[in-house]
Amino acid sequence: MPSELITNYFRTETLPHIWCPGCGNGIVTRAIVKAIDNLNISKDDVCIVSGIGCSSRAAGYLDFNTLHTTHGRALAFATGVKLANPKLHVIVITGDGDSSAIGGNHLIHAARRNIDLTTVVFNNSIYGMTGGQYSPTTPTGDKATTAPFGNIDPNFDLCELANAAGATYVARGTVYAVNILEKVIQEGILNKGFSFIEAVTTCPTYYGRKNKKGSAVDMIQYLKENGVMYSAWQKMSDEKKIGKFPIGKLYSKERKEYTEQYQMLIDSLGKERN
């Protein structure tokens, strides 16, 4: 018997999914659904918007209002959905290439506006759908089909990028630390503003194989050993931080939310007329 989460929130007739054995995307998708379930939000009030890539296929499997858009544009479509109907909880599912290469402009501007969207980036450090090309988050030196001699591009820290651009909730989780991932997605949905969650996931088929990272289990083991809770991370020396990364809530701040500001504008013009 599948779990109630599956029967209640997935379009079960569309399963099995297209992801490879050992892929972490199912774990992130489940965490999103669990966060929505924990918050007891009606399925009719949730809109999932995704772009193009492995991660973005998640939208179709989920029993919400789902919008699978063009490559890189999920946040731009989501901005239209949210501004037109602010009652919807709009959650954006995207990948590292989708959100930070072709869609990088939309990411910084959605964060700048602080529009109430919750963005979950499935970061597997590679373009999986097209067969393993390097993305803006592929670590320097790592290999990919388009970096056969090692990647010379410096890579983005997406959480730092989102924070600098103005996101009011920024967190990172991994497909090992599932409870933390659920918790930060939940907090992201509750935050009235632009929330950014980097979900570090695993691609054993392309990224793992190209870089000799071992099996799917080995890759998850790596996340277990190197993802450090932010509270502990802050106390660590620079030397000890090498090779590790912080997880959990990283940043939050108060800023005015975009759709609320727009509604205030409409209301004030209405008063002027009256």
Binding site: V49, N65, L67, T69, T70, R73, A76, F77, A78, T79, G80, V81, L83, A84
Partner: peptide, 8 residues
């Protein structure tokens, strides 16, 4: 893109 999203 935003116009398409709004129309939905």
């Amino acid at each position: 893109a935003a116009a398409l999203g709004a129309s939905l």
